[in-house]
Design a protein around this nucleic acid. Structure first.
Length: 220
DNA sequence: GCGACAG
DNA sequence: ATCTTGTCGC
């Protein structure tokens, strides 16, 4: 875990958070280090009540997707939800939950965007840099970038581009006839592998199995 | 200035 | 995210 970045989690204004994001974006890696994927985690945060957060991280065997470990942390949450600054609200509790895992997973699927973000540093990228582990951004709705909707069949996709026309993510149909997922590189992974991992994690439902399990344990 | 806006 | 029952559709 990167201790320097850990300190930058506590901000006191949106302006400060934006400054940290612009500084951290250059640290994101889009390269896979060659590791074998035997476990894939899912991270999600719920808010049972005002000012209270419940973070959940589950670890599944890959590609069988069998649940093999999970960790839950519940505590106070002060930072509000601000589009573009989601990580400052959800990462603190996720880091606490992370400490409760028996073994570190090979990668983490996140409920939010990676580099498909206004400043190239969505929650998935921020979490990856902090934990120094491969992460994938898997959001249920768009935040930044332009794109066309892919055809209705599972597997169909279309690129998400930034203002310069550069590809920053993929709108992916994970299941036939369902709303697409917005997949992007978090950290230490390439878009091709991120998309394939999401497809391998959605054999039955639209949401990747690790994220569904985390969402379920969070109680909702 | 106006509209958009992950969870 | 959260407030919330039944209901339409595969």
């Amino acid at each position: 875990m990167n201790k320097n970045l850990l300190k930058k989690l506590s901000i006191h204004s949106a302006r400060e958070g934006i400054g940290h994001q612009r500084e951290m974006r250059a640290l994101v890696s889009r390269r896979w280090d060659g590791r074998r994927v035997e476990t894939a985690a899912g991270a999600d945060v719920h808010f049972p009540s005002k000012g209270q957060a419940r973070a959940v991280i589950v670890v599944c065997a890959f590609p069988s997707l069998e649940l093999i470990d999970s960790s839950i942390y519940e505590g106070p949450c002060t930072f509000p939800y601000i589009p573009g600054l989601l990580s400052f609200r959800e990462i603190p509790p996720l880091v606490e939950a992370w400490k409760g895992l028996k073994k570190q997973p090979d990668l983490v699927l996140c409920d939010g965007h990676g580099i498909a973000h206004p400043r190239g540093l969505g929650l998935a990228s921020h979490l990856g840099l902090l934990l120094e582990i491969p992460t994938i951004g898997c959001a249920k709705s768009p935040l930044y970038g332009t794109f066309e909707l892919p055809s209705p069949e599972k597997g169909s996709r279309s690129p998400i581009r930034d203002r310069n026309g550069l590809t920053i993510g993929t709108v992916l149909r994970s299941r036939d006839g369902t709303r697409p997922l917005y997949v992007s590189v978090g950290h230490m992974i390439d878009l091709r592998r991120a998309v394939n991992t999401v497809l391998a994690s959605t054999p039955r439902f639209r949401i990747p199995e690790p994220l569904r399990a985390a969402h379920r344990l969070a109680g909702s």
